[in-house]
Design a protein around this nucleic acid. Structure first.
Lengths: 100, 100
DNA sequence: ATATCAATTTGAAAATTATCGAAATGTAAT
DNA sequence: ATTACATTTCGATAATTTTCAAATTGATAT
């Protein structure tokens, strides 16, 4: 993976609110809202105290970094983690560890 | 690990130049400059085309996020990756993967 | 003691980012 | 058709970030 792409991924996770959003999406797999790994934005918006426009912007940035995959379901939006990408990141970080 | 700390770590890796710097430090373990995982800043500064003040600032930010550990050796500065922290990050990301 | 050189600090400019309120869009329900 | 509601777009502002040139510090070598 090229450095710019990698930096973009980390940037997407570098804002506390956006990171929290990402973690909620990631954890939704095991929560009440789940539908095979997906999560509805509506269901998590209340638990973060930031406005809807900001959420929308953050989601776009996560999706733009390929960290999540979104899908429109009627008027709702669902998100799920792009596990392949995250696996790649984990591998890249692990490669540099002496305790591999 | 708390979210703010986690975000700070990702932020430290979110700038392409700073990420490249980090990766060079991480890879120095297996390079010519190595002294048991350490690397001298002098030896990598030429390979990045950014000025010394910027490098200094970036190193401080990486160290501030605990991603690297620095040590002064006379007038030189050496860096090495904080492998414990990186291992923790890897674990946190892996926990959310279905392919653990 | 002086010169050299690695690194840091300072001050500043340009660019980017996070966030919001208001308005707009599009879907679904009545 | 009208309403309600999730999400998005727009425009704007405040805060943060990246970067550099110039000056400073501190250590080593001559």
């Amino acid at each position: 993976m090229d450095i710019k792409k990698m930096a973009k991924i980390f940037k997407a996770l570098s804002n506390p609110n956006r990171l929290e959003l990402y973690l909620k999406i990631a954890d939704a797999r095991e929560s009440d809202f789940q539908t095979s790994g997906e999560c509805f934005v509506t269901d998590i918006i209340d638990s973060l105290n930031i406005g809807a426009p900001t959420i929308s912007h953050h989601i776009k940035e996560l999706a733009n970094a390929d960290l999540i995959i979104t899908e429109k379901r009627g008027k709702f939006l669902t998100c799920r983690v792009n596990e392949q990408l995250v696996a790649e990141i984990i591998k890249l970080l692990t490669l540099r560890q002496s305790t591999k």
